[in-house]
Write a protein that binds this DNA or RNA. Structure first.
Length: 530
RNA sequence: GGGCCUGUAGCUUAGUCAGGUAGAGCGACGGGCUUUUAACCCGUCGGCCGCGGGUUCGAAUCCCGUCAGGCCCGCCA
């Protein structure tokens, strides 16, 4: 059974109404790791619906979280905003300077991310956390937290093993300069928290407004209660013993809520580069990813892995494998079952089908409609030697991959394939560049005998039938005639045509090219000294 | 120091929650397509399931121990 279905089944025991949630702090560019946060919850949500439960999916944006420090992509002008909630800070421009517009910092980073989510079919109910504070929905929980300050302190200290300062207070008010840093609480009289900030200014914060916030560990527990969250997968940073999930559970109960059961997902890493980190520039943005990877396959990359396994996000060779795996599972799903399946095969099939189902952009879409019918590898090959899409379709019809017109799924694949090929992530060894003239490297690698062969071959290619069969025959016959091995003959052609000593079946490539193009290239070899 | 996760074929892994003869993909190798490498098709090889103990008629699966790798433990999610 797929992990999302399994989770949904577990949730069913708890009740019939569910709220699945994700929470992310918009402190910088969103990256592919955040997609896992989102999709883990969203897939559970879909699985709940598929199980006949009532469910909604909310995406809580931690817009009330303060700016921690001046990140590398920000100018030093942001110094003054440290400690200020992200919703109350102006968005940066492309140079990292604060802008004058209406857009705040949180929205600035959120907006493009939401667009990407739309493309992968995620339609969350977006909750801006600072608005929840503004609406006074946190007030009751803040009041309880302050009244039960010592109990909460004990929970945090016992479970996390961390010692809190003597003047610790379960609410951080915003001081006179807008920052929560260095503000000391001096009194609480519902609904006001009285404080003195680092400039010596005194003031009060109304807990019914966004004039301060709960510290993270309590904030999280409080929102479970406020929104009635029943499922919130969290990154493994929260999952370790004594982490915020562990303290959140008893705190949530203390605040009168029923916490979700703990679920921890592993992180996505970029292959060979360790964990995703905005500050180190080790990121692939969802926007960038979606330019390369079809949306259902991006979803599949999350759906196929169990939550507790880390994912190596790799835009190189493994992308070929993953995309082809998607196609394969898809075609297996529609195959008729022959004979009895063993229990294990049954499980595998169910899991795969679950992954396919949850990978669809729109819930309920038939996975079969996303079938492209061509492997990524083959498409990559064609996309590189055919500049016009129509030529690609023509070739696919010839090879029997395509009957009539390409499906939308296939058209979109080709479009992304082209941006993948032209971008920096396409694997070097999969690149095929048809040469216009013989390269220096090729000259050095081609012997005198091979050169003779190529010149002879050119003459024949000028007039032979232009199909795989006769081109191949010309090559073999010519090789025989000049007495070089078939292998040497092909190696020479590879060097001339693609500047490498091997590659895909070269005859097929030649026949896909225009005769004139090939002959012109062959022409350039006769002018070389060896 | 505390804890989490992972360890199954060369590589990526399924199967572990519900114990019942170890599955798949890729790669490699071989073959087919009058063709030779990365399009298509078929086949073969390949696993003391990290190691040691225990429970059981039976363990990859449960229990204990052990080793190895990855990761988390600041109001950073």
């Amino acid at each position: 059974m797929h992990w999302a279905d399994y989770t949904a089944q577990t949730l069913k025991e708890r009740g019939d109404i569910h709220v699945c949630a994700s929470g992310i702090t918009p402190s910088g560019e969103f990256h592919i790791g955040h997609i896992r946060e989102i999709l883990s919850a969203e897939m559970i949500h879909r699985a709940c619906l598929d199980l006949g439960l009532e469910s909604k999916y909310i995406f809580i944006v931690d817009s009330m979280d303060p700016l921690r420090r001046v990140y590398d992509f920000l100018s030093s002008d942001y110094e003054k905003y440290i400690g200020v909630p992200l919703a109350f800070i102006p968005a940066p421009d492309e140079n990292g300077n604060p802008t004058q517009g209406d857009l705040n910092y949180a929205e600035y980073f959120l907006k493009p991310f939401l667009l990407s989510l739309e493309k992968i079919g995620v339609k969350p109910e977006v909750v801006m956390n600072h608005e929840v504070y503004e609406q006074g929905k946190f007030a009751e929980k803040i009041d309880i937290a302050i009244n039960k300050k010592n109990e909460i302190k004990t929970i945090i200290e016992n479970i996390s093993g961390r010692e809190l300062p003597v003047d610790w207070f379960p609410y951080s008010p915003i001081g006179s300069n807008g920052s929560m840093d260095g503000v000391e609480v001096i009194n609480y009289e519902k609904p006001y928290v009285y404080w003195i900030d680092e400039n010596g200014v005194e003031g009060k914060s109304d807990i019914n407004k966004a004039e301060g916030k709960l510290p993270w560990r309590i904030d999280w527990a409080a929102r479970w209660a406020i929104h009635g969250i029943t499922s919130e997968p969290a990154g493994k940073d929260h999952g370790s013993a004594g982490g915020s999930y562990d303290t959140g559970i008893p705190i949530c109960k203390l605040l009168g809520g029923e916490p979700p059961s703990k679920m921890v997902y592993e992180w996505i890493q970029i292959k060979g580069m360790g964990p995703m980190s905005s500050s180190k520039g080790v990121t692939i943005g969802p926007v960038e990813a979606l330019e390369l990877v079809p949306p259902e396959i991006l979803r599949y990359s999350i759906a196929r892995s169990k939550v507790n396994r880390h994912i190596d996000f790799d835009t190189g060779n493994t992308l070929f494998e993953m995309a082809d795996e998607y196609e394969r599972i898809l075609s297996e799903a529609s195959k008729k079952i022959e004979g009895e399946l063993s229990r294990r095969q049954e499980i595998a099939r169910k899991t795969n089908n679950g992954a396919l189902r949850l990978s669809q952009i729109n819930r309920g879409d038939d996975p079969k409609n996303s079938w492209a019918g061509v492997s990524f590898r083959h498409l990559a090959l064609l996309a590189q030697i055919k500049s016009e899409d129509s030529e690609v379709w023509e070739s696919l019809r010839k090879s029997g991959h395509l009957e009539k017109s390409p499906t939308t799924a296939l058209e979109e694949r080709l479009e992304r394939m082209r941006s993948w090929i032209n971008g920096p992530h396409f694997p070097e060894d999969s690149k095929i560049e048809i040469q216009k003239v013989i390269s220096e490297k090729a000259k050095q690698n081609i012997t005198e005998e091979q050169k003779n062969f190529l010149i002879k071959l050119k003459n024949r290619l000028e007039k032979c039938e232009w199909d795989d069969n006769s081109i191949n025959n010309q090559i073999r016959n010519t090789a025989k005639e000049v007495e070089i091995t078939i292998k040497d003959a092909f190696v020479a052609i590879y060097w001339l045509l693609i500047d490498k000593n091997n590659g895909p079946r070269i005859v097929s490539i030649i026949s896909e090219l225009e005769r004139i193009e090939v002959v012109d290239l062959f022409e350039t070899i006769s002018n070389t000294e060896n």
